[in-house]
Design a protein around this nucleic acid. Sequence first.
DNA 1: CACCAGGTTGACC
DNA 2: GGTCAACATGGT
Length: 214
Amino acid sequence: MSVYSLYVMLEEMFGPQGWWPAETPFEVMVGAVLTQQTRWENVERAIGCLKARGLLSPAALSNADDGTIRECIRCTGFYNQKTKRLKALAKFVVDVGEQRLYAMSGEQLRNMLLGVEGVGYETADSIVLYAAEKPVFVIDAYTRRMLSCMGVRGTYHELQRLFEANLPRDVELYKEFHALIVAFGKQWCNKKRCGECPIPSWPKPELKVEGEHP
DNA sequence: CACCAGGTTGACC
DNA sequence: GGTCAACATGGT
């Protein structure tokens, strides 16, 4: 089974996902930080609170009172570090200029984001793909688990290359594929067991990580 | 009551 | 370059 046919199968199973749920690109960024190790339902509540207080813009958030932010995002956990991370990200956007961010290449934006406090591989790639809409494949815990069930293991960049090397460089495809993997993971991949999928046609594909290690 | 959630960091091999 | 405890609230 090819990587692309896996996508087709997931699309047939779950239908269009329409990620990322947000009204603006900056809201995507905020959500990307808040959803770290956190359920999306709690993130939505926090974002609703920030929005109600007019803090969902780079300028407003970077100047906001820490206590106010913390109050809004408490339900997402890790609120102390996330308050700091949100302000660091907002300040970064203000400093660089939001339009300039979306205009630069995905690779350059990714590298700059990785320099921001609290932004690691997955958060950076989520922002590049869903906010800046540049083709980079996002690898998360569900992706790892799903591939692990299929007998494929590797580092973040190895797994990322597996998808990028076997798919057309298409932003909409990347967006939808990752969302579908999460949908699948939520239903079938618990942390404990991921083996027995009731899907009859669940394949044991011979996916391989190609190329040499970085 | 235990375990887990759309990770990242700093410390330490 | 890879592994691991902390970080914290809310749901099952």
